[in-house]
Nucleic acid binder design. Structure first.
Lengths: 240, 240
DNA sequence: CTATGCAAAATGTTCGAACATTTTTATTTA
DNA sequence: TAAATAAAAATGTTCGAACATTTTGCATAG
């Protein structure tokens, strides 16, 4: 049988004071990144032995990671037949998108309602990092991370841990669809600039405490992505 | 150090055709039940070696289960300090309750909107099982399972897998609070009868496709629980 | 007495071999 | 040839020992 082994996501530079993360955590991060980037193809089988050589860990460590990723729905498993990368589908994407919209809209209103100065300052900081880049690493991975952080900063006041927990997971899944199906767009400078303009507006509406307009803009902010992604998905599988 | 070992949840009878579930799955189910019943105390440490003897598996199997339960937020872990049962707190409960309310209200409207005959029939069946008992096993565990199934049946039409996934987890957490803090009430026949009357109303409003009243009743259905549980929690820790 | 540091114990983590199941391949038979 | 079967390979699962880190207990210095 052919072996679709992949090379793991870039090894992280161990800065002097980094507190020596566990093997399991390292593999978790690398596998998650590789699933989100598409390096581990949607629907493909995840054989723990292959994983253990690719990501340099034991079968046990890899199985721990698989179990963890099941909880975040990036990995599936039925009975004693091993693990699979979750597939892509139009229905799944629509669900992810709509549920995130609902949760985020609610959280945004709460944040605008009761957010304090710290929230405002953190939001400004997140916007700055998003647009100015995060330092040395300025690839697609960190861009998406900064993007996610900005959107999390928007709602990082008042809303519950549960809310944030779910929004984070849904965001990660949304990113996966974007990165795999629209890789060109998210690297196009014009598109990025245009989107960042919306981010700025969003931030300013928050600072002005204009919940209604912010909610509308947030929804519009994503609607193009949604339509285009569903279009791509229907091209791949017209019947779903 | 003292050893707070517990006896595992009752061993499941292996009927002839049961497809031989994996050790990990068995331990997962037993540990989850013991966390929800309070046999594994909120906030207590989960030492894999103790677990492996209590639940008759290897450390590796137990670690897989811990990782899985982390995804459902029944178990926490920070750095290299092992696993802990998630604690109880008033804020956490309020978050669980409110988020579930929001998700379920939305799902209920969708179900009433587009639910078909199969949905209606399934709902009637779930109500029957809830009130008439589920057969041999009629303890608190199966009562709660049937209760959860009824509420899942209410929304089991149209709403997304993600929605159902999250509602299920939130329900399990809500049950945990009820079982640990209000054990008397949920076993009181009068209370059960009273609640089941509400269940019947709820079902009938669904069959009548009266979304507005159903939504109101669903909210009210839980409000007493919510108030009483928050009261209990404040007694335990008045400052949370 | 408190604080500090060391050693021992407890606990957390990782590993790869051993075992079990599923899937594939080869072979036989109708 | 096609279906059935058995052997072999591949893959999935489980285990407990080995290793690493954290916590505990104790001795000593301030």
């Amino acid at each position: 049988m052919e072996n679709h082994s992949v090379s793991p996501a870039e090894t992280k530079v161990n800065t002097a004071d980094s507190p020596k993360e566990s093997v399991t955590l390292r593999i978790y991060e690398e596998v998650l990144e590789d699933i989100r980037s598409g390096k581990l193809a949607p629907g493909s089988k995840l054989k723990v032995r292959d994983l253990s050589t690719t990501y340099r860990g034991s079968v046990g460590s890899c199985r721990e990671v698989m179990n963890r990723l099941m909880g975040e729905r990036f990995v599936e498993s039925r009975g004693m037949t091993g693990f699979k990368v979750k597939g892509l589908s139009a229905v799944d994407f629509a669900e992810v998108h709509d549920l995130r919209d609902a949760l985020e809209a609610h959280a945004l209103r709460t944040a605008i309602d009761i957010g304090d100065t710290a929230w405002e300052e953190n939001l400004i900081l997140a916007y700055h990092r998003l647009t100015r880049g995060g330092g040395i690493e300025d690839d697609i991975v960190s861009r998406e991370a900064r993007h996610r952080n900005f959107h999390l900063a928007l709602i990082d006041a008042g809303s519950s841990d549960w809310h944030k927990f779910y929004v984070r997971v849904l965001n990660l899944h949304g990113e996966r669809y974007r990165r795999i199906l629209l890789p060109k767009r998210i690297q196009n400078p014009d598109y990025v600039a245009e989107v960042d303009a919306e981010h700025r507006q969003l931030m300013e509406l928050c600072l002005d405490r204009d919940a209604d307009r912010a909610a509308v803009l947030l929804k519009r902010h994503r609607s193009r992505s949604r339509a285009d992604l569903l279009n791509e998905l229907h091209k791949l599988a017209p019947d779903s």
